[in-house]
Design a protein around this nucleic acid. Structure first.
Lengths: 336, 336
DNA sequence: GGATAACATGTTACCGTTAACAGACAACCG
DNA sequence: CGGTTGTCTGTTAACGGTAACATGTTATCC
């Protein structure tokens, strides 16, 4: 790979002159400019962004640290982020923590060393450690999807509480009285908020004591396990609220294995929709979150920060969630 | 952000000594080491990877340039790549070209400037320009998913030809004689190969002249459009082979709108499976490609290259595709 | 006891780029 | 004609890190 010095030698000028041509700064005679441009073309010269970044202390690169890109919600989020970032000339380094705090810390250390200009973080847990680490080192950060209670930081997330409330209300309105919540890990704020929304709806209906909460992980296996547990308990719920799409899939498997029909024998609703592009047959009644927009907004917020245009006060942007009623929910079966 | 000099000053040593502590190289007295480590901890010092990279000419970063991370096949591929890369301490910059040659060129320029150690490329078209650009600048590259006919380069891809052959054979074996292919753009090698496999199966069955090929894009809209066109033609095919998952979804919409049942009135099979974690109800008969493994293998190949362990000869790794028979394919309806 | 080796630390120079400063020359002005 | 202004190009130093070399100290050996 040729350097600015190689170009300079070939064009018979100094490196500084080449730099001026590349950056269109200062005075350059037409003749010199052409000679330099030719040398650049002949050598296939590409400026070294590392050297530039070292001087300017900005890399035009941000890090995206999330739990699992394979979750369609995060895939769409990531796409929104990359689109918004590349539009402003920023590159995105992406990292999967698999909900591990250790992996998260490891990735954070790496990207800070690589001098990313900012970090978009979907935290593995509610610990404020990661954000503090970044703040101590002066790296701007926007937290995505999840709340961090103990630290002042920009956050962009969906309204889990209101979404869960509406989803539960939907089931109550259909006549359900025994509604189970298959939740994610309580260490994650979305699980906490979905639980809160669920409880609020039950409380309003005077059914506080009817709450049945099963805590697991946000995975198919988690859903499978908690659903199995739920089916063992009596009286059996007539509706199941899965706290995310993976849990819903796991739960559905259990119900199928038990020979139960949805929604005839049991209603099953979930948080998080699948993109229309991968749905053969939209079936689940869900709360859909605007994942793409969430990614965009978070990126814009971060980039404004980098440009120094944002208010000092940390912002919390909460995007509304949408109830989409489909075929997986219906009235409870008649009691025998 | 503090530098190695700040740490040195605080510990009362030279920058070089700090460097030695960090990298565990050369001789350091236990006492000095402790003083330096304390200074590092107190300052929250993090080494600047840019400065290191500038010296060593390696960034421990690779670029992943693909068409759309939102396509579940590529999502899984990306996950395989990130896992394999991070295992070896490499970071991944990801870029979506949306099948645009211009975007691809733009991203390539950026990541080469950023001095990535290598590039994983899902090319937007069969043009060899991108790979040549990288080779001219000495940036190692592995091409993913698609063949590039005019250039010698490492490639990891699925066996589209054999997969298409088997999928078509499956339909022929069920008794279908009029099988339409809703293909992707002919500028992409996978579309070319799937067409070839389809033709080979028809040829073997003596049905060469029965081929009906509709060229579109690898999108839901593309599938929708070509399927609509197909339905207008007579005699109507009894089976449809969608060249990817998005096309299948688009086609299914058309069939539903036309009141046709799958597989009773028409069989519909596709290339590319969805991850089990997002399937409510596995329905499509498909050819599944080992996307995760493809990503892993390609990354390993690239990293071996970087370590100088790989053969000079460009390798082509072709991974087998698997036929998964489900409910969307069945015998053709009885002729009236 | 002087040579030698092992240990411990510091100095210099360089990776590729560019801001700041400096110098040279031409045009223009009063 | 001397000074000012505008144009064009070059030199130096710095961004943060470390290899190579240099230097000094202490322990070891014959």
């Amino acid at each position: 790979m040729s350097t600015i010095g190689d170009v300079a030698k070939r064009a018979g000028v100094s490196a500084m002159t080449v730099s001026r041509v590349i950056n269109n700064s200062g005075y350059i005679s037409q003749e010199t400019r052409e000679r330099v441009e030719q040398a650049i073309a002949e050598l296939g010269y590409v400026p070294n962004a590392l050297a530039r970044s070292l001087r300017f202390k900005r890399t035009k690169t941000i890090a995206l640290i999330l739990t699992d890109i394979t979750n369609p919600f995060f895939t769409t989020l990531a796409r929104g982020i990359e689109d918004a970032a590349s539009e402003q000339g920023f590159s995105v380094i992406f990292c999967n923590t698999d909900e591990s705090q250790d992996e998260e810390a490891e990735y954070l250390s790496v990207v800070v060393q690589k001098q990313v200009d900012g970090v978009l973080l979907v935290p593995a847990s509610s610990s404020s450690e990661s954000v503090t680490f970044l703040q101590d080192r002066g790296v701007p950060c926007v937290v995505l999807d999840r709340r961090l209670p103990d630290v002042a930081v920009d956050t962009v997330r969906g309204d889990s509480e209101a979404g869960a409330y509406r989803l539960t209300r939907h089931l109550l309105d259909l006549g359900h009285r025994r509604i189970a919540l298959l939740n994610g890990p309580s260490s994650v704020s979305t699980a906490e908020d979905r639980l809160a929304g669920y409880r609020r709806a039950l409380d309003e209906a005077g059914l506080s004591s009817a709450a049945r909460v099963y805590e697991g992980s946000y995975t198919v296996e988690g859903g499978y396990r908690t659903a199995k547990q739920m089916l063992g308990d009596t009286p059996r719920p007539t509706a199941v609220f899965a706290a995310n799409n993976f849990i819903a899939i796991g739960a559905l498997r259990v119900l199928r294995e038990a020979g139960l029909r949805v929604p005839d024998d049991l209603s099953l609703v979930a948080f998080d929709d699948l993109p229309a592009t991968m749905m053969i047959d939209p079936f689940f009644t869900v709360i859909g979150q605007p994942a793409y927009e969430m990614g965009q907004r978070a990126t814009q917020l971060l980039l404004e920060h980098l440009a120094g245009q944002s208010p000092a006060e940390p912002q919390e942007i909460v995007l509304p969630a949408q109830l989409i009623v489909r075929r997986s929910s219906g009235p409870p079966p008649a009691e025998i």
